[in-house]
């Protein structure tokens, strides 16, 4: 299972990456999550500019027989969304840590970042749950 060490994670299987400029956090779902979902057929994205709280459901990902909420790992404002997913939802399956990203948040509380799981913690959490 690919769980990149440079990312942070949530229990609900989102990954988060701080952009180089430190101004925004990119969010997607983990390889484990996309495998569980199987073929993604639709992604519903939040409007840019929306204020979100950590733990709030802000996007939806659907497969043929399931739908899951995607939660904001940190509080802030939606800075960008991956509009490519509207036409090619399969990117979530094909490249979950890259082109399959969902949205970017401009964080409002820096300490929340520190509370996210490391790759090691997430790996352990997965082992416990499976």
């Amino acid at each position: 299972m690919n769980i990149p060490a440079d990312l942070r994670y949530t229990k609900s299987h989102e990954w988060a990456r701080r952009e180089a400029d430190q101004k925004s956090v990119v969010v997607g779902i983990t390889e484990h999550a996309q495998e569980e979902l199987k073929d993604v057929v639709f992604v519903e994205l939040p409007p840019v500019g929306k204020a979100v709280k950590a733990g709030e459901a802000v996007a939806v990902v659907e497969s043929v027989k399931a739908a899951f909420d995607i939660y904001a790992p940190v509080s802030g404002t939606i800075a960008a969304v991956n509009t490519q997913l509207e036409r090619q939802p399969q990117l979530v399956n094909q490249d979950s840590y890259g082109q399959g990203w969902f949205f970017k948040i401009t964080p409002s509380q820096s300490k929340e970042w520190e509370q996210l799981m490391s790759s090691g913690d997430y790996t352990k959490a997965l082992q416990v749950s499976t």
Binding site: D39, V41, F42, E62, V64, K65, P89, Q90
Partner: peptide, 8 residues
């Protein structure tokens, strides 16, 4: 039947 194609 291909339900994935139907939805995409």
């Amino acid at each position: 039947l291909d339900e994935v194609q139907a939805a995409r």
